[in-house]
Design a protein around this nucleic acid. Structure first.
Lengths: 339, 339
DNA sequence: CAATTCTGCTTCATCGATTGAGCAAGCGAG
DNA sequence: CTCGCTTGCTCAATCGATGAAGCAGAATTG
């Protein structure tokens, strides 16, 4: 039976009338604290049954309006196009639900203006807490939250106003670079500086990874070639263009490189195939981030996988404990087995 | 200046007091229909300025409670671990925002119970419309929505209660199978039935793809080997186990196969590498779904990419037009160039 | 048997925004 | 000068759920 006029939703008043009781009794029963409110088990059962029969669903807007806390938790995330952010979002949702929180997520496409707009929208929806993942300006978001009295946590990229949970980018990049350098030396018998490509020079993660990159070079006594550090942005096209430009500039490229995220790797690989530059022999690659198909691309690629479960455990520990000491928690990433 | 007591949020009443006017004037100004409500430009400007200064943010819970429509649009999605669903979600968010709608998304991890729970939760938050993407039981969701007077649309997997937008799975699978058959014949000089692996035998997409698979075999006069149709589920582990089992059972596997989604391909590739079964020569693969790194895995893989932009255009056309004729819109997928 | 406590409810204000109805002042027409 | 219209607002009800306060009647106590 279809109605063109949208079926009016059942409210606690409807149920109250049907049960011959008051709305507040219905509310008490359905919100589970009928013992506290001294409602008889008999009436409780009757109301519960009626609610079931009538297909009653709580109006959260009304409920949240009245309550002190909304139990809504927000997250902003840059993209959904890679395994890293995908697993962050999936895990976040699961953990939020476990805690009886309602997760809302917004993808900002790495657009700073959209980030701010999204944060404001979430505050309008009365989130109790906001996780800013990979935000370009985490402090701006933290300020907006603070003005509204809402807790915030940074994930992936750190800020200076609220606690942050990030990967240990330095350690991960150090180890990754070591491996690529070793692979190159093993195969080509020479110690030579690697190429670094991808990421934004201004973001904390990229600069820490560059630091790890430098440290690994220093360990083996190789000087980093500064013209080969290409922090051109994350997008595949940007990485592709950067490769093209550097190849034109320097003629011969190193036999090993550090790629800052799978998404940049996409562009790098595309360039390699299109240009035919490494047609004789594939270079040794190190990719900061993991993807199952990248792992199958060959034994010339090393990967570092960020430890998403541990990162989100840390995030929720901060949230659950209500802690707000200004600290940056660094989670060691996992160096993947090759092959 | 940090306060332990959360800063009380500014309301229209606060602004009214500051402006020496009434809350209703403030509401009229801030909701943009002050002309209709005959508020002077002068007062409007004053209120706007004050709102700015005080960092006023609308309380959506209150606003939605009062309004007829919430302008919230929900989507449930099975997973975030592949490009297909990732781009669906990203595009959905962007298109929703373009229309002044607030998107909320929930990932159900292919769990039927969670699907229902998620749908109910969204209704509690008063969504105006719900998109059920890849739902195991779309009709159940449609019924729940219908009871609440909420519009629903199916995406990716069709249902029988509300309009659906899906890929033309038959055509896509037909073309994909043709190509794999042709590739096999070219390389091995023989016409032989392919293996089909991945997906659920009960879902519409998988059965349509199997139908396309059969049709392509029929075209070249090859009989499908029924023991080689393995609709074992989507998860990588399931595909991996299915491969293992069939290899043990039949000894030698076909030199070509149809893999139903990148996520199943992950398991298939893993098995191929671990078992060493195709160590001499990689089989020709056809993958229903696209991934940039899969495309780089070699020239032995053909892919079909579902046309997400067109699919979402169709979804929003249904939503925008308010149409609710019971139809299934099939969008042709894109056969990717190999190499 | 009166006083007190306990049980099982109901009443009502409240959360913040929206909106139909209404009111007072100003202004022009007759 | 008065009637009627316009302008520019205010009032108050409303959305649905919540919970403090309160109120009968039953049960217990001294």
């Amino acid at each position: 039976m279809k109605r063109s006029i949208p079926t009016k939703r059942t409210t606690i008043y409807d149920l109250a009338e049907l049960a011959g009781t008051s709305a507040s009794a219905v509310s008490a029963v359905l919100s589970g604290n009928w013992k506290k409110r001294r409602i008889s088990a008999q009436l409780a059962e009757k109301i519960t049954r009626l609610a079931e029969e009538q297909g009653y669903a709580l109006n959260m807007q009304a409920s949240v309006l009245r309550r002190e806390r909304s139990k809504i938790i927000g997250m902003i995330v840059p993209k959904y196009d890679n395994r890293y952010f995908g697993s962050i979002v999936e895990q976040f949702e699961a953990m939020a639900r476990e805690r009886g929180l309602f997760p809302i997520i917004t993808c900002t496409r790495r657009d700073p203006a959209l980030e701010i707009e999204a944060a404001r929208a979430m505050l309008s929806y009365q989130v109790d807490c906001l996780i800013a993942t990979g935000a370009t300006d985490p402090d701006r978001i933290a300020d907006i939250c603070s003005a509204a009295g809402v807790r915030a946590v940074n994930l992936d990229l750190p800020g200076s106003r609220v606690p942050s949970v990030i990967s240990d980018n330095f350690a991960g990049a150090l180890e990754l670079t070591r491996r690529v350098l070793a692979n190159c030396e093993r195969e080509f018998g020479e110690k030579a500086p690697l190429l670094f490509v991808g990421g934004r020079g201004t973001d904390h993660n990229t600069s820490e990874r560059v630091r790890g990159f430098r440290a690994a070079h220093a360990e083996v006594g190789v000087a980093v070639d500064e013209t080969l550090v290409l922090t051109c942005g994350y997008a595949p096209e940007k990485a592709e263009n950067a490769m093209k430009a550097i190849a034109e500039k320097v003629g011969t490229l190193p036999r090993g490189m550090f790629v800052n995220s799978t998404i940049s790797l996409e562009g790098v690989m595309r360039w390699i195939r299109r240009s035919g530059h490494y047609a004789d022999r594939m270079p040794h690659l190190g990719c900061f981030d993991w993807d199952p198909f990248v792992a199958m691309l060959g034994d010339h690629i090393e990967m570092v996988r960020q430890d998403v479960p541990r990162m989100l455990d840390a995030v929720f520990e901060i949230i659950d404990s209500g802690a707000s000491e200004l600290k940056v928690i660094q989670i060691p990433p996992i160096v993947e087995q090759t092959g």
